[in-house]
Amino acid sequence: PETNDANLQDVLTPEIVSPLLKDRDVCNALFPHLPDNAPLDSQSIEEVLRSPQFIHSVNSLTYALRSGALGPLMAELGLDTSISTSDGAVVAFLRAIQKKEDDTMDES
């Protein structure tokens, strides 16, 4: 099942995310989900991305998706469960998120 899967840790790196933090709207969308008392600036978000606690959590989620949580989590997030899982659970999860964003953008 995971012969061609992706790792969430590879996707949520500072290298990939940082360039997007220049956009104030992006930062504003992320701020509410930071820990209490974390400063509300892009440096704070970058530090979080590098923190062992965040990385541990991301890896837990990868593991969970591959161990049966994919279905329940997709249902919880209102994602399209018909997305193919032939590449692996993480790829399916990410493509389902992409699909939801595309559908939302089409509607507006």
């Binding site: 992706a6 590879d10 996707v11 995310v17 959590s57 493509r95 998120i97």
Partner: peptide, 26 residues
């Protein structure tokens, strides 16, 4: 961390960064 993770993934999706990241990770 779940809400932040999801929001980050949505941001990447909105900005066309998700699919390239998937491929790189594969």
């Amino acid at each position: 961390w779940f809400p932040l993770i999801i929001e980050l993934l949505k941001v990447l999706a909105k900005n066309g960064k998700l699919e390239p990241a998937i491929k790189e990770s594969q």
